[in-house]
């Protein structure tokens, strides 16, 4: 049943430009570095003798923003598909459980962000090789900086999907999304417990894996809360 629902959700996303956004995210993040290194490569190489490490730091300054912004946009998109003509009432009156409807939406979004992360890794490596640092490639770090922000952003994804599916007014989910982006932008000054800080992989112990575990834990918790709230609510 789950596979069928996923296929249906993919079908509904046709002509909505969501896949385009999925690709645009990582392209945008790397494009910024193309400009950065294109304009002042010599200067940047002087800043730090660990060229790859410094390059990855530069990229990771924008990854969380792109992810949080992407979450805000894609969750409202996926909810608006059903909200537009209140197709929820048609969907929920079909012989499927409400929980699987919710799980399918969450899964589709996760797949898209996972794909974004994969692309980010490929582009990071690609442009890094193009820059020709002549240093050993830190594959582990490249992997971490590509995938960890996504896992750390799971709570934001779960929260936004919840807000977008249960609020009749898309304005509410957009507002939560915009506030989230502002938080992500000012991650440096936020306390560690704020979920919007986590994708930046910063914390006071300087260990990004903490953010990943927190992301997975709190993410599943918020997902379960959202799913049960969605199930409990009447469809009007």
């Amino acid at each position: 049943m789950m596979m069928r629902l996923l296929k249906v959700d993919m079908l509904k996303m046709k002509r909505k430009g969501m896949w385009f956004l999925t690709i645009l995210g990582p392209v945008g993040v790397i494009a910024l570095q193309m400009v950065n290194y294109g304009v002042r490569k010599e200067y940047l190489l002087q800043q730090n003798s660990d060229y790859w490490g410094y390059y990855l730091k530069n990229i990771s300054a924008f990854t969380p923003l792109a992810i949080v912004l992407g979450i805000a946009i894609l969750t409202s998109f996926i909810a608006s598909i059903e909200n537009e003509t209140n197709a929820w009432k048609q969907l929920v009156a079909l012989p499927i459980s409400k929980m699987s409807v919710y799980l399918s939406k969450f899964t589709v979004l996760s797949i898209m962000f996972f794909l974004s992360s994969c692309l980010l890794m490929v582009f990071t490596l690609g442009f890094g090789l193009f820059l020709d640092f002549n240093q050993e490639i830190p594959f582990l770090e490249v992997f971490q900086y590509s995938f960890f922000p996504f896992f750390a952003a799971l709570p934001v994804l779960a929260l936004q999907l919840w807000v977008a599916t249960v609020s009749k007014n898309q304005g509410i989910s957009i507002t939560v999304g915009v506030v989230g982006v502002i938080f992500a932008y000012s991650a440096f000054t936020l306390p560690d417990w704020m979920i919007w800080k986590w994708p930046s992989l910063m914390n006071e112990w300087d260990d990004p894996t903490i953010n990943v575990w927190l992301g997975l834990g709190v993410g599943s918790m918020l997902y379960i809360i959202g799913m049960f709230d969605f199930k409990r609510r009447d469809v009007r």
Binding site: K12, K14, R15, T85, N86, A87, K89
Partner: peptide, 13 residues
């Protein structure tokens, strides 16, 4: 089978 109030559909499909 059901049709509840205004028809629901996906306009872009």
């Amino acid at each position: 089978g059901s049709l509840v109030e205004n028809p629901s559909y996906y306009p872009h499909l």
